[in-house]
Amino acid sequence: MSKKIKIRVKGMHCNACKMLIRVELEEMDLEENIEKIELEANNQGVIVLKNMDEHDIRKIIDKINKTELYEVI
Protein backbone atom coordinates (compact mmCIF):
# COMPACT_ATOMS: atom_id res chain seq x y z
CA MET A 1 0.00 0.00 0.00
CA SER A 2 1.37 3.45 -0.93
CA LYS A 3 1.40 6.13 1.68
CA LYS A 4 2.93 9.36 2.83
CA ILE A 5 5.63 9.01 5.41
CA LYS A 6 7.56 11.36 7.61
CA ILE A 7 11.05 10.57 8.78
CA ARG A 8 12.65 12.60 11.53
CA VAL A 9 16.42 12.78 11.31
CA LYS A 10 18.83 13.73 14.05
CA GLY A 11 22.01 15.59 13.06
CA MET A 12 20.56 17.80 10.32
CA HIS A 13 21.63 21.34 11.06
CA CYS A 14 22.24 23.23 7.83
CA ASN A 15 21.45 23.62 4.16
CA ALA A 16 24.22 21.17 3.22
CA CYS A 17 22.50 18.53 5.36
CA LYS A 18 19.24 19.11 3.49
CA MET A 19 20.99 18.87 0.16
CA LEU A 20 22.89 15.76 1.18
CA ILE A 21 19.72 14.00 2.28
CA ARG A 22 18.16 14.96 -1.07
CA VAL A 23 21.16 13.52 -2.93
CA GLU A 24 20.93 10.29 -0.91
CA LEU A 25 17.25 9.95 -1.82
CA GLU A 26 17.92 10.80 -5.46
CA GLU A 27 20.48 8.02 -5.54
CA MET A 28 17.62 5.71 -4.60
CA ASP A 29 15.53 7.13 -7.45
CA LEU A 30 13.14 8.69 -4.99
CA GLU A 31 13.33 12.30 -6.19
CA GLU A 32 9.71 12.11 -7.38
CA ASN A 33 8.62 11.01 -3.94
CA ILE A 34 10.19 13.88 -2.02
CA GLU A 35 7.50 16.21 -0.78
CA LYS A 36 9.74 18.24 1.49
CA ILE A 37 12.92 18.18 3.48
CA GLU A 38 13.04 20.70 6.27
CA LEU A 39 15.25 21.64 9.16
CA GLU A 40 13.81 21.73 12.62
CA ALA A 41 15.10 23.15 15.84
CA ASN A 42 17.49 21.17 18.03
CA ASN A 43 19.73 19.82 15.29
CA GLN A 44 16.95 17.85 13.64
CA GLY A 45 15.26 17.66 10.28
CA VAL A 46 12.22 16.08 8.78
CA ILE A 47 11.75 14.33 5.45
CA VAL A 48 8.27 13.95 4.04
CA LEU A 49 7.91 11.41 1.25
CA LYS A 50 4.79 10.53 -0.67
CA ASN A 51 3.65 7.32 -2.40
CA MET A 52 5.99 5.16 -0.44
CA ASP A 53 6.03 1.40 0.04
CA GLU A 54 6.83 -0.15 3.38
CA HIS A 55 9.77 -1.90 1.76
CA ASP A 56 11.37 1.40 0.68
CA ILE A 57 11.07 2.94 4.11
CA ARG A 58 13.43 0.38 5.63
CA LYS A 59 15.94 1.01 2.86
CA ILE A 60 15.79 4.77 3.34
CA ILE A 61 16.34 4.48 7.06
CA ASP A 62 19.32 2.19 6.50
CA LYS A 63 20.81 4.54 3.91
CA ILE A 64 20.46 7.59 6.11
CA ASN A 65 21.90 5.81 9.15
CA LYS A 66 24.81 4.54 7.03
CA THR A 67 25.95 8.08 6.31
CA GLU A 68 27.17 8.14 9.93
CA LEU A 69 26.24 11.80 9.93
CA TYR A 70 22.59 11.36 10.66
CA GLU A 71 20.35 9.09 12.63
CA VAL A 72 16.71 8.38 11.97
CA ILE A 73 14.76 8.86 15.19
Binding site: C14, A16, C17, L20, V23, E27, T67, L69
Partner: peptide, 13 residues
Protein backbone atom coordinates in the same frame (compact mmCIF):
# COMPACT_ATOMS: atom_id res chain seq x y z
CA UNK B 1 32.78 24.26 3.68
CA UNK B 2 31.85 24.24 7.31
CA UNK B 3 30.84 20.73 8.36
CA UNK B 4 31.17 17.02 7.66
CA UNK B 5 27.99 17.12 5.54
CA UNK B 6 29.73 19.57 3.21
CA UNK B 7 32.51 17.03 2.64
CA UNK B 8 30.12 14.26 1.64
CA UNK B 9 27.91 16.57 -0.39
CA UNK B 10 30.84 17.95 -2.38
CA UNK B 11 32.20 14.46 -3.01
CA UNK B 12 28.87 13.17 -4.24
CA UNK B 13 28.10 16.20 -6.37
Amino acid sequence: MHCASCEVLLEKK
